[in-house]
């Protein structure tokens, strides 16, 4: 046991160094993905079939295929297109060489599919009376959406979104497939180098639990803040 503990200490710095990678992958993907989810949800509720069908198809594909396959296709698939093109001479190339941006791109698109569908349900669940009230006050359609429908929908689906973000945090472990060595990938690297099977996994598990705990707390604060008018004053 003492030996195991000493081993934990030797691998801790390597694993901790990977925590910012996992966190930034999660943060940027959640930010971009959840923002993209708004147009996806709105389009899927649109009476216009040219908006509704592509959106439904997008959600279907994103939820219907493994994230692993999406990540791999985006990184190595796009990589096939670049050789010998202007892209390799462009100012963007240093970024396009880096797996990090592809990982964020893939995770964002995937998140947009999932939360888009959640947001669609939440928008439908906004009480009609509140929208009618806004209309009675003479709010324009756009104003109703930004000031009433969307904030209320977010309020409704926030607990589910927290769950989605936790899933996203853990899904970032796929990034090691495209050379982005986050916590889980680093743990697997340590496994291969030291031939210790369980300790790196346990250590990574502890780090994930801490990250998820902090994330849940933060989201709870956000929930409180958004729902502050509904809380009974203490």
């Amino acid at each position: 046991m003492d030996e195991s503990f000493a081993f934990f200490l030797t691998i801790a710095p390597t694993l901790l160094a990977a925590v910012p990678v996992t966190l930034s992958l999660t943060f940027f993907s959640a930010l971009i993905g959840n923002t993209l989810a708004v147009p996806v949800a709105v389009a899927s509720l649109s009476p216009n079939p040219l908006l509704r069908y592509p959106s439904a198809f997008y959600i279907f594909v994103m939820r219907g295929t493994p994230l692993l396959a999406q990540t791999y296709l985006i990184y190595y698939g796009l990589g096939e297109l670049f050789p010998g093109t202007w892209v390799q001479q462009s100012f963007l190339w240093p970024y396009l060489r880096d797996g990090f941006w592809y990982a964020i791109f893939a995770f964002s698109l995937n998140t947009a599919g999932y939360t888009g569908e959640i947001l669609r349900g939440a928008i439908m669940a906004v009480p009609k009376g509140e929208i009618e009230a806004a209309r009675a006050y003479g709010f324009s359609k756009g104003l109703i959406f930004w000031r009433v429908t969307l904030p209320r929908a977010i309020q409704i689906c926030l607990p589910t979104m927290t769950g989605e973000t936790i899933l996203l945090l853990k899904a970032t472990s796929l990034a090691s497939l495209i050379t982005v060595w986050e916590v889980m990938g680093t743990a697997r690297q340590i496994q291969k180098v030291t031939f210790r099977v369980y300790e790196p996994l346990i250590a990574a598990g502890i780090l994930y639990i801490i990250m998820v705990f902090v994330l849940t707390r933060l989201m709870m604060l956000v929930e409180r803040r958004i729902n502050r008018h509904r809380l009974t004053p203490a």
Binding site: Y76, G79, E80, F82, P83, Q88, L96, R97, S176, L177, I178, T179, W181, G185, Q189
Partner: peptide
């Protein structure tokens, strides 16, 4: 030094010019 999970993958990135 860019570390890949498999040799196939660094070969693919060599063709792609990323390494």
């Amino acid at each position: 030094v860019k570390v890949y999970d498999t040799a196939d993958n660094h070969n693919a990135d060599l063709v792609a010019g990323r390494i």
